[in-house]
Simulated scan of single mutants.
Amino acid sequence: MRRFFTYALAGLILVSAPAAMAQGRDRGADRKQQEEAAKKKSRDREWNQPEAPLPALRNAGPCPYVKVLYDAGRYIEFEGGKEAAGNVVYSGEIQGLSSGCEYKDAEPIRVSLEALFALGKGPKATSDRKTYRYWVAVTTRNSTVITKEYFDLPVRFADDRTMVTEKLEGIVIPRASMETSGSNFEVLIGFDVTPQMAEFNRDGKRFRVSAGAPKAADSN
Rank of each mutant, 00 (worst) to 15 (best):
40 K>V: 03
186 E>D: 15
186 E>H: 08
33 Q>E: 07
55 P>E: 11
178 M>Y: 03
5 F>I: 14
138 V>E: 08
134 Y>T: 02
105 D>W: 01
42 S>N: 05
16 S>Q: 11
162 T>N: 08
107 E>I: 01
141 R>E: 07
191 F>W: 03
27 R>V: 02
30 D>W: 15
49 Q>C: 12
87 N>E: 15
190 G>Y: 06
99 S>C: 01
116 L>M: 12
217 A>M: 14
58 R>Y: 06
188 L>V: 02
184 N>W: 14
217 A>T: 13
92 G>Q: 00
210 S>W: 08
86 G>N: 13
137 A>L: 03
96 G>D: 15
157 F>S: 06
20 A>H: 05
134 Y>L: 02
90 Y>Q: 00
43 R>C: 03
84 A>V: 01
45 R>F: 12
132 Y>Q: 01
1 M>K: 13
79 E>F: 00
141 R>H: 09
22 A>K: 09
184 N>S: 15
107 E>W: 10
116 L>E: 14
144 T>P: 00
157 F>P: 08
131 T>N: 00
51 E>R: 10
217 A>P: 06
214 P>Y: 01
27 R>S: 09
215 K>G: 14
125 A>F: 05
70 Y>L: 10
162 T>H: 07
219 S>R: 13
46 E>M: 06
75 Y>M: 06
213 A>E: 12
86 G>L: 05
132 Y>S: 00
130 K>S: 04
128 D>V: 06
91 S>C: 08
210 S>N: 13
205 K>S: 14
205 K>H: 14
98 S>Q: 14
78 F>S: 05
205 K>I: 15
12 L>I: 09
80 G>Y: 04
60 A>M: 09
137 A>R: 08
109 I>E: 04
65 Y>E: 09
54 L>Q: 12
13 I>G: 01
71 D>I: 13
54 L>M: 12
59 N>L: 02
69 L>S: 12
34 Q>S: 08
215 K>T: 08
194 T>V: 03
72 A>C: 10
66 V>A: 09
3 R>T: 06
17 A>I: 12
147 T>A: 11
164 V>M: 05
128 D>R: 13
150 Y>I: 08
116 L>D: 15
112 S>K: 03
69 L>E: 15
136 V>Q: 02
146 I>C: 06
165 T>G: 01
36 E>I: 14
120 G>Y: 02
79 E>G: 00
141 R>I: 13
13 I>C: 05
191 F>T: 00
129 R>W: 04
40 K>P: 00
164 V>W: 04
203 D>W: 07
205 K>R: 15
26 D>A: 00
86 G>P: 05
78 F>R: 02
220 N>D: 09
60 A>E: 11
27 R>W: 05
130 K>H: 10
47 W>G: 04
7 Y>A: 04
196 Q>D: 15
86 G>Q: 11
175 R>L: 04
191 F>L: 02
173 I>H: 05
146 I>M: 09
140 T>P: 02
181 S>E: 11
22 A>F: 12
198 A>L: 04
86 G>M: 03
182 G>T: 03
213 A>Q: 09
4 F>P: 00
135 W>S: 11
